[in-house]
């Protein structure tokens, strides 16, 4: 049980980082980054590539790309950097003055194609088998503490990073930069006419989000020791997104609640505790159907989410109006 709990805690932390990052891009800046999971995968693969070390012959089925074995915490930094670099390249192409729906289509298709190519091309990241036996950080600690305690230490480390991310997200969230992003989201020509440069602003948020995504990918792969296309199906982005929409777009705590409900309470718990029904894989497919239905339901019933975006207030308001919150 303790093993499950620490595993879930790590997953939750990584999912939360991803959700906050995607919310910056999607909620603040209005960038429909439906390829978000690519940037997490970029971080994960990079983390694996720089920790796997040279080919020792043990895993003969595996390609070793870099042969590097960087000491902790460098691989995490490199993973974040990789997420940022990939974001920069993708952002320079897609973040032009393009209609948002076209942008969304491009992102979705990029995610679908990327996974097809990585799955099929064995020379890239070992194809659909993915990379395995990725060393966990500070493996010596695992020997001295035992696996159970090591897992909790890892979870605590992830929690620490989440707190750091929350501080970053909240201080950014109160800045003029964030307000300018939202302005550019609502009316690009209007924002431009006030002297703001939406292209730069959006590229910045895209790269920051990509770095956090890469970091979360690194944390995940460092924990589970393996990474393959199965971990980053294009639909994973929509699990993150459904969590954000359910919790409340542009509300940090709402995103936390939504992520917990969708990714942990629903997805992980069904995956870990529900007995398999039917043939293998059926539960998984059904989980995605339910996520799609949940997504539609939230959009219909409560489009602003459980905790709607907090209104910036300068007027004193009677208590009753505060209670009505977001409206």
């Amino acid at each position: 049980m303790s093993y499950y709990l620490s595993t879930i805690a790590v997953y939750f932390g990584a999912d939360l980082l991803a959700a906050w990052a995607l919310n910056m891009q999607f909620g603040w800046a209005g960038v429909p980054n439906f390829a978000f999971i690519i940037f997490q995968a970029a971080g994960a693969y990079t983390y694996a590539a720089v920790t796997l070390g040279p080919d020792s012959g043990v895993n003969s089925f595996q390609h070793y790309i870099l042969g590097a074995n960087l000491p902790f915490p460098l691989p995490l930094l490199v993973a974040a950097l990789a997420g940022g670099v990939v974001s920069l390249v993708v952002g320079l192409i897609t973040l032009r003055r393009l209609r948002r729906d076209y942008q969304a289509a491009v992102f979705l298709l990029a995610a679908v194609i990327a996974i097809d190519v990585v799955s099929a091309d064995v020379n890239l990241f070992n194809g659909s088998n993915g990379l395995a036996a990725v060393p966990q950080p500070v493996a010596s600690l695992q020997n001295s503490l035992g696996l159970g305690a090591y897992q909790w230490v890892y979870a605590a480390f992830v929690a620490l990073i989440c707190v750091g991310a929350l501080v970053l997200v909240r201080s950014l969230g109160r800045s003029g930069w964030q307000r300018a992003l939202r302005a550019a989201r609502d009316d690009e020509p209007g924002a431009r006419a006030l002297g703001l440069n939406p292209s730069i602003l959006r590229l910045q948020v895209f790269v920051i989000g990509g770095m956090i995504a890469g970091l979360s990918g690194g944390l995940l792969v460092g924990f589970i020791s393996a990474w393959s296309p199965g971990a980053w199906a294009y639909s994973e982005t929509f699990a993150v997104l459904t969590g954000i929409i359910l919790g409340g777009v542009s509300n940090d705590w709402g995103v936390l609640i939504g992520t917990f409900l969708i990714q942990i309470a629903f997805q992980e718990v069904t995956a870990l505790f529900l007995p398999q029904i039917g043939y293998p894989g059926l539960t998984d497919a059904l989980v995605w159907v339910v996520i799609g239905v949940l997504w539609l339901t939230v959009l219909f019933v409560r489009p602003r989410g459980i905790l709607p975006e907090k209104r910036f207030r300068v007027l004193a308001v009677p208590r009753t109006r505060i209670w009505r919150g977001g409206r």
């Binding site: 439906f34 969304a104 639909s235 995605w288 539609l296």
Partner: peptide, 14 residues
Amino acid sequence: LMVTLATGLIIQYT
């Protein structure tokens, strides 16, 4: 578009 996306997700996994 978001609605069509969710619809597509549902169709694919169904």
